[in-house]
Design a protein around this nucleic acid. Structure first.
Lengths: 214, 214
DNA sequence: CGCTAATATGAGCAGAACTCATGTTAGTCC
DNA sequence: GGACTAACATGAGTTCTGCTCATATTAGCG
């Protein structure tokens, strides 16, 4: 796990590494139980059996905690996609859509706190939405979904051997953003993910990408 | 303005009505300035020149404030769509996509706090995401985007005279959810809304809906 | 003019995020 | 072993936010 610049200090000793991991686990649990608004640093610390001071040794912030969790989930997701692609390469690009969506659904069902992967507001740069003159760029990779889109694109392109067009990058970003939204809706509508909405999500993405990949 | 069951008590006298309106205005301003996390009830009250006690006379909650604002924006949006449709009926359903998206962009540019129209987490039922056994249903209309989708569908169907299929309802929900996500991305990428992403949003929706409306 | 419901007000309470001064351990070089 | 440094541990305390509530004032109406 890389957990980029998310932590205040990276734990080097075994015990503190375990503690950080435990805090992330409990954070995920609490997010699934009561949502972000009800998430409490004290409760996370209490459940992880860690004093509150230790929490703030490693996380600068409540957001920092959630961001670190999102990053961990995101990497787990991409790793699974990558390994499934190398295990069984694709014959058709439409299979890639199924694979990517199904894996999302699978992780959402099994991985606590997986719903936080996007979480635009929280994960974006601090200070809230675009202060005047700030103009956050796409390629600054502040957006989680943009990162996912980029990795997915390279994985799929590699596995299929397509010519990497320029606008393919943007197309993937759009597709990921849209699919993410529809899948989240599917899980808001039904705890296990509304099957019809999941199917529609695939149809949406296939329809949209067919121009670029057919 | 209807502001459903959002308020703790509906203001009947002129002065309090103005005060509630002023609080919503300042809320919108603050949301655009610093985002939801930095939003403070005290600051809203201070700017609206209303004591904090008065704030809680009308709003049960900080969320209640934001929900009321979202509702106000949402109704303004739908009203504009409706009046534009009656002013100049559509010849082609693809025009409806342009109209709906362009109007969204226009309002996002001009109306403070318009970004809050969806705001899944915040607007959803209190208690965070689906507690075990709760299973929030789509047709409970807790989802703002579902309301928007339904209204848009009836408006477009009416203006075009299409046969209202059963799955058209779900298709509109999916389209609205996806379009909303992509448009928000467009505004995160560029303060005025990235034109390429706006164009892609239209393409996405047209592609997806063509099965249902062609 | 009196009566009721609506409105007004801000000190104060509960609790959350986060700090910091002080103590303890792990690793390393001699 | 001992000495030294950097990583880690700790929880009482500070600050600030959401929100309440007892009490005072006003609007509308017969």
């Amino acid at each position: 796990m890389t957990t980029g610049g998310v932590l205040r200090r990276r734990p080097t000793q075994r015990r503190s590494q375990e503690r950080v991991e435990r805090m992330l686990d409990e954070c995920a649990q609490l997010l699934d139980e009561a949502g972000y608004a009800a998430l409490t640093t004290k409760e996370v610390a209490r459940r992880a059996e860690v004093p509150i001071g230790t929490f703030y040794q490693f996380f600068t912030d409540k957001q920092s905690l959630v961001r670190a969790l999102a990053l961990r989930n995101l990497e787990a997701y991409l790793d699974r996609i990558a390994s499934r692609l190398t295990a069984a390469p694709l014959s058709d690009w439409t299979d890639a859509v199924d694979l990517v969506v199904d894996e999302f659904v699978r992780m959402k069902r099994t991985t606590p706190g997986f719903g936080v992967v996007d979480f635009g507001e929280v994960l974006a740069a601090p200070g809230g939405p675009a202060l005047p003159g700030t103009q956050r760029m796409l390629d600054e990779a502040l957006e989680n979904n943009v990162v996912v889109a980029d990795r997915l694109r390279s994985l799929v392109v590699e596995s299929l051997g397509v010519a990497p067009g320029d606008d393919l990058s943007r197309a993937f970003v759009v597709a990921v953003e849209a699919a993410d939204a529809v899948l989240k809706l599917a899980f808001r509508a039904h705890p296990e993910g509304d099957p019809d909405l999941i199917a529609e999500c695939k149809r949406l993405v296939r329809r949209y990408l067919s121009d670029h990949l057919a």
